[in-house]
Each structure stands twice: as C-alpha cells, then as structure tokens.
C-alpha cells in the first residue's frame, strides 16, 4: 500500500519550491528537514502547543497536523518570512523590546498567530489578542509581556 514519493509544488515565503516527499511527511518536518527552515519549532507534535504554527494561504495552521502533500499548490509563510531586507518585522521588534520571549522556543508560533491577527485586525484590544494567542503555550513569560508586545506592534504599524 505504500507509495514512494509525491511531488509537492508550493510557494514558501514567496519562493517557489518543488520537492518529492513521502505522503506521511508532516508539513513541519518538510519545512525543517527538506527546506532547512528551522525557525518553525516542534513542541508536542500533536496539535496542543502551537509552537509549529505557520500560515497556509494566509490562515494559521498547526504544521504538525498537516501533511506536506496537502500544501501542494498553496502558499506557506513561516517565521523566516517575517523579516525583510535584514530588518525585523514590527512584531519581532516589539517582542524584543517588551521581552515577549525568554527561552524563545514558542516565539515563532506566537509571532505567526499574532501576525495573522494583525492582518485581520490592526488594532486589537487585549481580549482579542489573548483570544488570538490562546492556542499557543508559553511556559516562561506568563503571557503578559507577549500581550504587551502585540499591543506595541499594533500601535507602531
């Protein structure tokens, strides 16, 4: 019943990619292992922690709960897609300034969830920010500084 490899054509951070993968290749492993984009971190690998959150066609998803073959023909954005021309994105600057990260493992997921929020809602209130990041777990910060960082980024933008 096994199939060897299927070809995936996908745009990742604006760049066209064409890679042959096993059907069971998770999107998260595809990004990290096949494309070398190790910014997307893997925490639980069963959809609980949110560390691997990326955007597929502009919508946040758990990269550990999608197969790479499912993004064929789609557009994926990872944390590496936030900065441009060596300049950090306003969200990244704000996480830096407000100490929205400590160990940093969950940060890429928080950045992507926050990025999706600000795309739809450029001036969120605290409740809206907390709702948007409710699927991301941080065991260091207690969330307060993350909320402040998202607020600061929204004010800057």
């Amino acid at each position: 019943m096994e199939q060897d490899f299927l070809t995936v054509r996908v745009k990742v951070n604006g760049v066209d990619k064409r890679v042959a993968v096993e059907p069971r290749r998770m999107l998260s492993d595809f990004l990290r292992e096949d494309l070398g984009l190790t910014g997307t971190n893997l925490g639980c690998e069963h959809g609980s922690c949110g560390a691997c959150t990326v955007l597929v066609d502009g919508q946040s998803v758990r990269a550990c709960l999608m197969f790479a073959v499912q993004v064929h023909g789609k557009s994926v954005m990872t944390v590496e897609g936030l900065a441009s021309d060596g300049q950090m994105h306003a969200l990244q600057e704000a996480f830096w300034e407000k100490q929205g990260q400590q160990c940093g493992f969950c940060t890429p997921g928080f950045l992507m969830s926050s990025y999706e929020l600000l795309q739809h809602n450029p001036n969120p209130n605290e409740a809206e920010i907390r709702h948007a990041i409710s699927g991301n777990i941080c065991r260091c910060t207690g969330y307060q500084h993350i909320v402040e960082a998202v607020q600061a980024a929204s004010e800057k933008a």
Partner: peptide, 11 residues
C-alpha cells in the same frame, strides 16, 4: 511522533 507509512489519494 511520526505517522506510519500510508498511501495518499486526494479525492
């Protein structure tokens, strides 16, 4: 935490 191999068909 990786799935066992399977055949994939997109209907």
């Amino acid at each position: 935490m990786k799935p066992a191999p399977f055949r994939y068909v997109a209907a």
